[in-house]
Design a protein around this nucleic acid. Structure first.
Lengths: 342, 342
DNA sequence: AATAAAATCCAAAGCGCTTTGGGCAAAAGG
DNA sequence: CCTTTTGCCCAAAGCGCTTTGGATTTTATT
């Protein structure tokens, strides 16, 4: 059923029916009701493509997800999308996921813009100098960045205080007496990884502790990496007495490696993980309960959706940005180091 | 830049430019090349909405994801989507995620159909009698079902052999000598949960072992549920000496509860988990390595995308369906039960 | 009661693309 | 040399909606 037919059924013009359906004021309330009822009855719903073509607005936002690279469609992404969805569904905005094929991000974003399939975009995982941000800002295409970049162009963004989080966590371990602290960070180049490393380094430098390059590793967040790298850490002499894990997935592997070596978690080796808050993986339920720096990536998604709506409502991007503090939650996986009997 | 302008630039008609761009044969190769070059140069890319309106085809498929209910946007969904994306990106099909707001699934699907935003749909997590399938089939809208349902209408689907998987796993435990086997299954009502339970029951019945209703629980897949339910199991007398876990997330919690109780995994209490193959959570890397029934949900996604393409190419839905066998992979988390000294 | 203002509704013009049905040249066939 | 085919290109008609600019009716104002 199309608009024309519905209009004929009702003995009204397309104009009036369209206006009634879209809530325009120049139509009698009684008429509007009649139209709405008929629409419901016949299951009419406007052809989205015609509508978009006519209006020049889409009602969808775009996200480019790499499907082959390391940052692929993992649990972080899906939690984040969940958060987005929670807010966007209220405005009936849906989202278009464009899988990135040949890793040519820029041209994927370009196509998405020029094909007019989305009203705005979300870009994630920025690097320190992110060319996507530069490009989108220059093209004046609305977007919100999840994370931060040093690109100067005005743009909306939300990030958590990664530096502060890892500074806090490292300082806490230092307070406990640890001298050898290792870190499994995210991939080099991403802002969040760099910020985390900065926080870690600052804390160590502040106490005059030199940084052992063997104690810091950059890789994806996975159980496997956590396991493998911790095995490596523990075979070093001296080995770290505390390990910072970039994600809960990593932390799982780290924990296992520690246990497998016969060490006791939170005693022989401490661990602090960054917790993005996955509903199916609860830090406080672990044994021992895991000390974490916590920040819900889902909540961030919801907030970013909110920002996006504001952006689409015409608010200038340069006024939209937030840094969220990250709380350090002390639990049982971190404790004072055991001083080896000399 | 729009088609008309591009055509003017080239001194050609819109028709010819359109045909050149879309690979129609009635245009000179030299002309085509000239057009392609110009398009690239001016960064032209057809307005997707106009294109869709004219063609009646969208180039996108739809997925409705519940965001509040239990089956929300979790790691299973994201892995599955990854798989889909891998195949669909080849045909430049992107996907539209429609968040489900008020849990009125049917009307969400209806709207998606009548608004012509997608060419086809994927439906997941079917129940034994799934009304979405009934509705879509009746509306003759193309879709592929991930899972199985008893609805009679012709439709395309792909499912794994959940019944066989859990029959195998349970039988294996019985072979090892276990008499008390518990199971943490998915939510009641979903076909996969029912099939798994069926496999489990069949194996037990075959050996004449009566089924203790306390040993079987239906819930979401999460670390927390695994932990909590296993604690409950282990407080029973007699307690199960083996536990089947519905997912790797569940298995993490189960393992922890077993260890927390002071039992040894694979010795005092065995565990077999169903592994959907998450890249960041590897069963064979666990300690002890986890015995699993394995079937990659990502690969299933890719295959379903393939089926979808066939469907869109006109293949009749009733000829498209597959059941994938599931392999039982023996590792160290399952062993013979320890006979308690009487 | 006559006029101005407001409330309703409508016809028709786009939105930017694809595609139908020809048209005109050059090549092929007789 | 004339006709037929083939190759290449074009003008114009939709696709189904929104929206502009007017027309018509109803209500308010003097």
């Amino acid at each position: 059923m199309k608009l024309k037919e519905l209009a004929e059924q009702l003995g009204l013009s397309q104009t009036t029916v369209s206006r009634a359906l879209n809530g325009y004021p120049e139509v009698n309330e009684a008429t509007r009701e009649r139209v709405n009822k008929a629409a419901l009855k016949f299951g009419y719903s406007a052809n989205a493509n015609a509508r978009r073509l006519a209006m020049g607005r889409v009602g969808a936002i775009g996200i480019v997800v790499p499907i082959h690279s390391s940052e692929r469609f993992g649990p972080h992404t899906s939690e984040f999308l969940s958060g987005l969805a929670e807010r966007l569904s209220r405005d009936e905005i849906d989202f278009l996921i464009t899988p990135l094929i040949n890793n040519d991000e820029i041209s994927a974003y370009r196509r998405l813009i020029s094909s007019k399939r989305v009203d705005a975009m979300i870009v994630s995982h920025p690097s320190l100098v992110d060319e996507r941000v530069a490009m989108l800002a220059e093209a004046q295409f609305p977007f919100v960045l999840h994370g931060r970049t040093n690109i100067d162009a005005p743009h909306a963004w939300l990030d958590i205080d990664n530096k502060g989080a890892f500074y806090q966590a490292t300082s806490h371990l230092l307070d406990l007496g640890h001298k050898h602290i290792a870190m499994i960070d995210g991939l080099k180049g991403f802002t969040f990884s760099e910020h985390r490393e900065e926080g870690y380094r600052n804390a160590l430098n502040e106490r005059g502790i030199s940084i052992d390059p063997h104690f810091i590793v950059h890789d994806c967040f996975s159980d496997e990496i956590g396991f493998r790298e911790t095995q490596r850490f523990l075979s070093l002499k001296p080995h770290p007495t505390a390990i910072l894990a970039g994600s809960m997935m990593t932390a799982l592997g780290v924990s296992r490696a520690i246990r497998a070596k016969g060490y006791q978690l939170g005693k022989d080796v401490s661990i602090i993980a960054h917790d993005d808050v996955f509903p199916y993986l609860n830090a406080s339920n672990m044994v021992p309960a895991m000390t974490t720096t916590r920040s819900s990536i889902r909540t961030a998604g919801t907030r970013i959706a909110e920002m996006l709506v504001r952006l689409l409502d015409g608010e200038p991007p340069e006024t939209i940005h937030e840094v969220w503090p990250v709380e350090l939650i002390l639990r049982q996986s971190s404790g004072p180091p055991v001083i080896p009997a000399k």
